[in-house]
């Protein structure tokens, strides 16, 4: 399934609806990046939320940047803080 990529600010209730979720693929990522199923409904949603279109590479770079920021913050913690922090070191991943 092809996807489109955009940035958009989650405005809360109504930003994406149950109907939206049934009609197209949608996943949210760091940096307000959204991966949107490439169909009529996905296109309509991008317009509705005033999404700013990105290429896959542009979207991936935004997410990578946020993960790198978090990795740097994690690496700056003491060994003890890492052990008790309840979170693991953030890892980069590929957008779908």
């Amino acid at each position: 399934m092809a996807n489109k990529y955009c940035t958009a600010t989650n405005t809360g209730k109504g930003f994406f609806t149950h109907e939206d979720r049934r009609q197209f693929y949608l996943s949210g990522h760091a940096g307000d990046v959204w991966v949107v199923g490439d169909n009529f409904f996905g296109d309509t949603w991008i317009d509705r939320v005033s999404g700013i279109s990105k290429t896959r590479a542009e979207a991936q770079a935004i997410v990578d940047g946020k993960v790198e920021e978090a990795q740097a913050a994690y690496d700056a913690l003491s060994t003890e803080e890492k052990e008790i922090g309840l979170q693991s070191r953030p890892q980069k991943y590929y957008l779908p």
Partner: peptide, 21 residues
């Protein structure tokens, strides 16, 4: 949320019927 704290919420609802394309 991959990786920072978030203020976003999501609501799970099961509907009686589902329109599919």
């Amino acid at each position: 949320s991959s990786p920072a704290g978030t203020d976003a919420t999501e609501e799970w609802t099961v509907s009686d019927t589902t329109v599919k394309t």
